[in-house]
């Protein structure tokens, strides 16, 4: 991959993650925050893929983006919806 394209993609993904992480703190609804945290994990997995670590990317995508998001959603249901 072209070096500058690689750098641009990495920095773009990083900025996207920072914006999403701040948004997860600010949003009012708990369910939106959970989905945004899942999006941060998915971006992290994309970043690992860009840095030539596909095995870490697979783990991050399945555990960080899928499993922990669903666990948080179930937990939200168990504590009784919105806070």
């Amino acid at each position: 991959m072209n070096m500058s394209l690689f750098a641009a993609a990495s920095i773009g993904t990083g900025i996207m993650m920072i914006v999403a992480a701040v948004a997860a703190l600010i949003v009012k609804k708990l369910i939106s925050a959970i989905i945004i945290v899942g999006f941060v994990s998915l971006s992290a997995s994309l970043l690992f893929l860009l840095m030539d670590a596909p095995d870490v990317a697979i783990t991050e995508a399945s555990i960080g983006a899928a499993i922990s998001t669903v666990i948080f959603l179930w937990g939200r249901g168990k504590i009784g919806g919105e806070q």
């Binding site: 596909p54 095995d55 697979i58 783990t59 399945s62 555990i63 499993i67």
Partner: peptide, 21 residues
């Protein structure tokens, strides 16, 4: 190829999670 026991096991578990959902 990239992967191994931990990532593969996590992927299989996420399929079971989908079944439970």
């Amino acid at each position: 190829s990239p992967g191994g026991g931990f990532p593969g096991g996590a992927v299989v578990a996420s399929a079971f999670l989908l079944v439970m959902l």
